[in-house]
């Protein structure tokens, strides 16, 4: 692939998949800015990784996996920084949106968005990969180094929790 056409292909690829990558990266960071940095770091790593393949844009499962690796590194460095600055209290900055704010008019969507944020990391990453990444359980299992059955179980368990949360909050709001 010619260098310029490779760059063009990667930009098209970024335009299509960037939001999904950002959503996944958001689960591994405390702020939107950190999540965008994770996406950027993963893309640089992917570019080098794809050199042997003629710089074609990478497969989505591999990018998810790389973001996760970068997220682990970020998490580790954050922990070390917190140890150094024990007097500072860090709060999660969850004011930025995870999913499209245009859906805020829709009560169900709003509740679900909050419920997705509250899922445990392990459950949320499977839901993100399945719903917004469009990956199969086989691909998810490869990206997360777990069995396909485990991926499917986590997904079902997450849907169960989301469904329960949806029902509970609707009952609270409507009596």
């Amino acid at each position: 692939m010619m260098k310029q056409s490779a760059a063009s292909a990667w930009k098209d690829w970024l335009a299509e998949y960037g939001p999904r990558l950002l959503l996944f990266a958001r689960g591994w960071s405390n702020t939107r800015e950190d999540a965008e940095d994770l996406v950027q770091e993963a893309i640089i790593r992917m570019w080098n990784h794809q050199a042997d393949k003629g710089y074609v844009p990478p497969d989505l499962p591999l990018v998810f996996s790389t973001i996760r690796f970068c997220g682990l590194n970020l998490h580790r460095s954050e922990k070390r920084r917190r140890k150094r600055e024990e007097s500072v209290i860090y709060l999660n900055d969850f004011h930025d949106v995870w999913l499209d704010p245009a859906m805020e008019e829709d009560e169900e969507a709003l509740i679900l968005r909050g419920a997705v944020k509250k899922l445990s990391d392990k459950l949320r990453e499977v839901v993100t990969m399945k719903i917004w990444g469009g990956l199969t359980f086989q691909q998810i299992s490869e990206a997360l180094a777990i069995s396909p059955n485990t991926a499917a179980s986590r997904y079902r368990y997450a849907l169960e929790q989301l469904g329960n949360e949806l029902s509970r909050l609707k009952e609270v709001r409507h009596g």
Binding site: P19, I131, S167
Partner: peptide, 24 residues
Amino acid sequence: MANHEAVEAALARLVPVALSQGAQ
């Protein structure tokens, strides 16, 4: 309790936020 298909359908209506213009 909402069934899984209904939850999936509701989730699919949520759209991931785009990268900020600066990050893009």
